[in-house]
Design a protein around this nucleic acid. Structure first.
Lengths: 342, 342
DNA sequence: CTGAAAGCGCTAACAT
DNA sequence: ATGTTAGCGCTTTCAG
């Protein structure tokens, strides 16, 4: 069942059928009605490939995320989906599992598939990879910084500042021995978070101690294990800053399981403000990132690029969004203040 | 840059190029090497559309889920992704938002796009819709039951039994006034869960009371609101069974916020066993479904269908997986037992 | 306003 | 083992 069949049955040429599909105004109302009726009768739908072959357009964009099980990435995905659906696009979702070669492999495949655009989240790619994508002229938006220092479409929050704020809050609340549970180290964002952590310590003349910096693996279990190690060490920290909420929540579980109290024995602050962080006990102090919004904005930016005919007019945009500290109970802030003022 | 260019540069015909791409063994090693080199040099990638137009194959499957923000669906997605990636397929992810017409609209689009297969999760479609899909001959697998009673590829757990077990556990622990926070009512699974709930009550000669059945909307907030309503009613229930963990966790938050204790004042059990359920305080008793595995199995089933040449050999399979009760603290089981035996 | 026909880039049957 | 060529189903000039 193809355009020819419809043409034959409608008693017109294939060109006319194509026209009612693509330029309805150029067809007389009568024939248009007639053709439409026949199409419905035959339950005709144009062949996507043939169409793409001519138009070179897929109406598909790809979204790469490092971990589909982490709520912040599904929030981003939701944001992207909301815009994409509204624009009539479909999303190819690719889960890179924080794996550089899986990411590269995916992109290679996606480029072959001629997706109309690409959104990379927390990308592990370097400048060379990115230039390669650009050469293929597929519109590209990055969410979160990456190893390439080149100007490109990007929506991001400042992880250095976020981590700095989190750590500083802990220091100001009165803790000195502040441990850091890092995410997987090859991700830029984790490097930046560590910079922020160290910066805050240094600013308050606190030592940056290796024994207090420990790598979780971005997951609940990783946070659990890391906290356990910390607690079993000679010098238990007074507070922990975890590079994401998943690890923070895992760490809390470890702390409680080992019979310690939060925040009295160990205070904790996380990063991301996922739903879970407001439901654990005590509620988790964290850095809130507008992730859904980032997805929305990234998608809009991408479609701006896709839809613009004028290649030149499309300057690369870097959109910076603010993160902010969300103080809840786990950092023990109020208790500390009470101590100080009483 | 197309196959012709490569052919010209390599000094062979397009057929040869096509052969090294599709049937490498039928080409002499020498020319194969040569062509491969030229392809690399020219950075050639075959046009996906042209290829699809001939082969009528996309290497894309679609996964429809009701809510990307619910961890059980991302677990399923992870399972599907793991298999798909391994098979060299990409996934179009569609978030239907528990909306029947959005689901229908998506499927229409996907069928046009000629995806190679379709996995529907918690589908809202009816028999007529499903028959329509089958007529298009796109392989289809359902995760969870649906309104169509026809035999079709399906992987599922028994929601009636699960809900029955959950409720029964509450009854056996000693509660009489057991409320039910339902998911959105147009989903089959929620209808079944309610049947299981009522069945357990009836079996123990407990009344099914309308005031104790209240609709959350599958979300944390919905659970929160529902529990709040329950608590503010004249007769506060002794226990709550929530149709999913998200709502259960929201309900717990409400209970605690209103100054009641779990499980002493109100016991609670959920459904799904998402990560969060083991991290809230007290840990949530729940029904565990093997969701990741369901994704895996559904994907395998789909690929079996896609890859089988023999249309006839492919009988529709219904794969039933067991769910099981995971007893933790929130249902107060141990306390009750102590009461009974002391 | 409509039709005829030339591709889009690739695959595979048919020749050699 | 390799080349020639007819499509795959559609869009779009170009004529009328």
């Amino acid at each position: 069942m193809n355009i020819k069949d419809v043409a034959k049955k409608a008693g017109v040429s294939v060109a006319t059928i194509s026209r009612v599909l693509n330029h309805p105004d150029t067809v007389s109302p009568t024939t248009k009605e007639h053709v439409l009726a026949i199409m419905k009768e035959l339950n005709y739908t144009p062949n996507w490939f043939a169409r793409g072959l001519n138009l070179n357009k897929t109406n598909v964009i790809a979204l790469l995320i490092p971990n589909i099980l982490n709520p912040i990435y599904t929030q981003i995905a939701k944001g992207v989906e909301d815009i994409a659906h509204q624009k009539g696009y479909n999303i190819l979702l690719c889960n890179t599992e924080e794996n550089e070669s899986k990411e590269r492999e995916y992109i290679e495949m996606l480029l072959k598939r001629k997706v109309d655009g690409l959104i990379l989240t927390a990308s592990l790619l370097n400048k060379k990879d990115i230039n390669k994508i650009k050469k293929r002229e597929t519109p590209l938006v990055m969410i979160g910084k990456n190893k390439s220092s080149a100007k490109e479409n990007m929506v991001f929050t400042d992880y250095i500042v976020g981590a700095y704020e989190a750590t500083k809050h802990l220091v100001e609340t009165g803790y000195r021995k502040i441990a850091y549970i890092s995410g997987v180290k090859h991700q830029i964002e984790n490097i930046e978070k560590q910079i922020g952590y160290e910066k805050a310590l240094k600013e308050f003349c606190l030592p940056v101690e290796k024994k207090y910096i420990i790598e979780g693996n971005n997951s609940i279990e990783g946070g659990y294990l890391a906290a356990k190690k910390l607690i079993q060490s000679k010098e238990i920290p007074e507070a922990i800053f975890a590079a994401n909420d998943l690890m923070a929540v895992g760490a809390m579980d470890a702390i409680k399981t080992m019979g310690l109290r939060i925040p009295q024995d160990i205070a904790i602050v996380g990063f991301d403000n996922i739903d879970m962080s407001a439901l654990v006990e005590p509620k988790l102090t964290t850095i809130s990132q507008p992730v859904y919004k980032m997805g929305l904005i990234a998608a809009r930016l991408l479609f701006d690029n896709i839809e613009s005919n004028d290649e030149e007019e499309n300057v690369q945009q870097e959109i910076f969004l603010q993160s902010k500290l969300k103080v809840r109970k786990s950092c023990g802030h109020e208790d500390r203040l009470r101590e100080i003022f009483n």
